[in-house]
């Protein structure tokens, strides 16, 4: 299984992570729109890590199965966590200064979206899927 882990510690890592995501999407035959969706989603999630947790990790995995191309991205940190997940994915909601207010937007870009958060551990998992011709 092809997997890339990018440490998220400063804003250069955000660029690195979205680049890796885009590359994997391209290699797996996703079109420009899905490449942009995935890269943008990774950008939003990894920026949240820097903004709210300081550091974390972004793991991009080729989770393709027979007949289906699939990329799973797991963004994980050990920051304060998200107190109210339902509120966090409400459009327009942000506890920050609007820099990384991307959760509702990010959710709309991807096929799968899941948040698990408790104080000290937050994992956001997303995936994009494409049926192979």
């Amino acid at each position: 299984m092809n997997e890339k882990a990018v440490k998220i510690e400063d804003s250069r890592d955000v660029v690195r992570a979205r680049h890796e995501g885009r590359e994997m999407a391209r290699k797996l035959g996703f079109g420009p729109a899905d490449q942009a969706r995935l890269a943008t989603a990774i950008s939003e999630l990894t920026r949240n890590v820097i903004q709210y947790a300081g550091k974390g990790v972004c793991v991009i995995t080729d989770a393709s199965e027979m007949g289906i191309a699939k990329i799973r991205v797991r963004v994980e940190d050990h920051g304060p966590g998200i107190a109210d997940i339902d509120q966090a994915i409400e459009p327009g909601f942000s506890t920050g200064n609007g820099l990384g207010a991307g959760l509702p937007g990010t959710r709309r870009l991807v096929h799968e979206f899941r948040i698990d958060s408790k104080p000290g551990h937050t994992v956001v998992s997303i995936a994009i899927v494409r049926r192979r011709a």
Partner: peptide, 14 residues
């Protein structure tokens, strides 16, 4: 602006 960027921005509501 590239088409895929326009598409992504509008989908995100931005």
């Amino acid at each position: 602006m590239r088409p895929e960027v326009a598409l992504t921005l509008v989908e995100m509501g931005r």
